[in-house]
Structure formats: C-alpha cells, structure tokens
C-alpha cells in the first residue's frame, strides 16, 4: 500500500477511536505527562529498527544504498517528587551501510556498533486536574544529549560516514511541552519540542522542531469490570519533524534537513507491572533527495516495567 494512502485511513481510525473505542495507555514514540510516583522507578527497554534506502531507478543512479540501524534504547525513569521526574537514556546501536553496484551486483558493507549518545531529561508537572477515572496534565521538559557515542570510527576504507557513526559528536539540548488527557475510556497525548544542535568543527547541523500526537484506545476488554487488570490498546500516532538545513561555514547544504511526517499504528498490552508494546512508523512525507536516503520504516518494540 502506498504510504500516502495511510493518511485518510489513519484519520478514519483516529475518528473511530474518538467516538467508539475505549482508549488507554501511553505514547510509544514519545513521552507522556502522566505521573511517576515519588521514589519509584520505571525501566523502559525499546528495540528500534530503522531501514532507509535510496531510489536508484527513479534517480538514474547505478548504486543502491541501504542503511540499517538496530538500537536498544534503555531508559530509567525516577520520580523524584510527585511532579518532578528524571529520565536517563542509553542507546546501544549497530548501524550498517550497504552499497550495491546495480551493474555488477557487487556490494560493500560498512558498519559500526557500540554505545550511542546518552541523554538526560527532567520533566515537571505544572498543571494537574485529576477527576474520577481520569486526569489532565501539562508538563514542560528540558534535556541534554551528550556526545558519549564514538563519532570518529573508521574501517579499512577510512572514516565511516556520519550517518553510521555511533554518536553525533555534539552536546545538544532540547526543550518541550507534553500534555496528556487520560480517562479509563481514552487517552490523548500531544508534545511539542525543539532540539538545539551544536556545531562540530565547521559543521552546524540544523535545529529540529517536532510535533507529536498519540491516541490510544482500549479494545480489550470492551467493558471494564471490578476485576479488570489487563488492557490491550490500539495506538495511532503522528510524528512531525522539521529540521533546518545543515550548514558548513554558514553555507546551507543541499540534501540536508527538511520536513518528515510519520504515521505510526501500534499495539500495547498493559498490566499493573508491565507494558508490552510495538509500533511501526511509516513515512507519509519526507524530503525528496537526489542520491539521498529516504526512511522506509521505523519499527519499535519493547516494554516498560515499574518496580
């Protein structure tokens, strides 16, 4: 199915969810404003599979390029107070770039593995309105991504390209606001954030504005009872990202930055201790680049455990 056809389908699913379904859960591709209890931990493990490729037939190129990324993202969440929550995230990643000559079908593969850039986030609830079977919360957050991943890896061909290095080589900061309306029947989350990328040597990577929305609907059980302790949720999410072009010595680089939108259907199994979840992010809009890689899909699966 053409990814563009997924837009009306997804909107339809969201409307069906709004008016008919029982919704509950938390977003898969971004955060929620729901609380973490004081003194309690949540461990979140997420496996991220990203595949990107170019389109040599459309661009008249002789080389097919494929990029694969497999990352294990570990996040430890701690409720410092009922309103103040701390997040620490460590990614372990494997990134591959495969080039195939379409005339000879010879291919070369380059790859790197190791720890990526760790990040720390703090989130503070500034507005809370609890009611019977529901809550509405607004929480700004601020964070930093540190250059802990190796960004100077080499192989026998020399320095690896930046898009398969483990780290970015810069300390970047971000700020945002997340809002959540949750009830026993449905949950909506929305987030806006801005990433301020530092420059590295003479390269200034473009800053990024992100907008994310998530709707979670409970389709099992259809009716709550006094003994309900497990939910199965359908999830539909929308991710918007707009990155400024990269610059070298102040000059904008073509084939960089741009606007990308994902639609992300997913599923969650929610119990008292554990949430299991999976989603697939499908691009519905992304920059058309000459000789450039375009995202084919992003698959996420993992769990959250409170202890």
């Amino acid at each position: 199915m053409n990814n563009k056809n997924l837009v009306p389908l997804s909107i339809l699913l969201m409307l069906i969810g709004l008016f008919n379904a029982k919704l509950e859960g938390a977003p898969i591709t971004f955060n929620t404003a729901l609380p973490v209890s004081e003194g309690e931990f949540i461990l979140r493990e997420q496996i991220l599979l990203v595949e990107s490729s170019n389109n040599p037939s459309a661009d008249g190129l002789a080389t097919k390029i494929e990029r694969k990324e497999n990352t294990l993202i570990s996040t430890l969440v701690y409720g410092l107070t009922p309103d103040l929550t701390l997040f620490a995230t460590i990614p372990i990643t494997n990134r591959q770039l495969k080039s195939t000559n379409l005339s000879t079908f010879e291919s070369t593969k380059r790859q790197s593995s190791g720890m990526g850039d760790v990040s720390f986030v703090t989130r503070y609830t500034v507005y809370k309105n609890d009611f019977k079977g529901g809550s509405f919360r607004i929480a700004p957050f601020i964070g930093v991504k540190l250059s802990t991943g190796d960004d100077n890896k080499t192989d026998e061909q020399g320095a690896l390209p930046a898009n398969i290095q483990n780290g970015s080589g810069t300390n970047d900061s971000f700020v945002g606001l997340v809002a959540t309306y949750a009830s026993v029947d449905w949950e909506w989350d929305g987030q806006i954030s801005y990433v301020d990328n530092e420059s590295k040597a003479n390269l200034q990577r473009g800053n990024v504005l992100k907008l994310d929305m998530s709707l979670q609907y409970r389709f099992y059980p259809n009716q709550l009872t006094a003994s309900t302790d497990t939910f199965i949720n359908g999830v539909i999410e929308f991710n918007h990202s707009n990155q400024q072009q990269n610059r070298i010595d102040g000059v904008s680089i073509e084939n960089s930055g741009g606007l990308i939108n994902f639609i992300s259907p997913g599923i969650q199994w929610v119990t008292q201790r554990l949430i299991l979840e999976a989603s697939i992010q499908l691009p519905i809009r992304q920059p058309e680049r000459n000789n450039g890689l375009e995202v084919d899909y992003v698959f996420r699966t993992g769990f959250r455990l409170n202890f």
Partner: peptide, 16 residues
C-alpha cells in the same frame, strides 16, 4: 478509597 487520576492498571501499581 475514591482516588482521582487513576486510569489504567499500570497507574494503580505503585499505590497498591
């Protein structure tokens, strides 16, 4: 105990 703000099994866990 009437507790406002609880919306899912995962939310109840720490109180329980």
């Amino acid at each position: 105990m009437r507790v406002d703000g609880i919306t899912c099994p995962f939310c109840v866990a720490t109180s329980a």
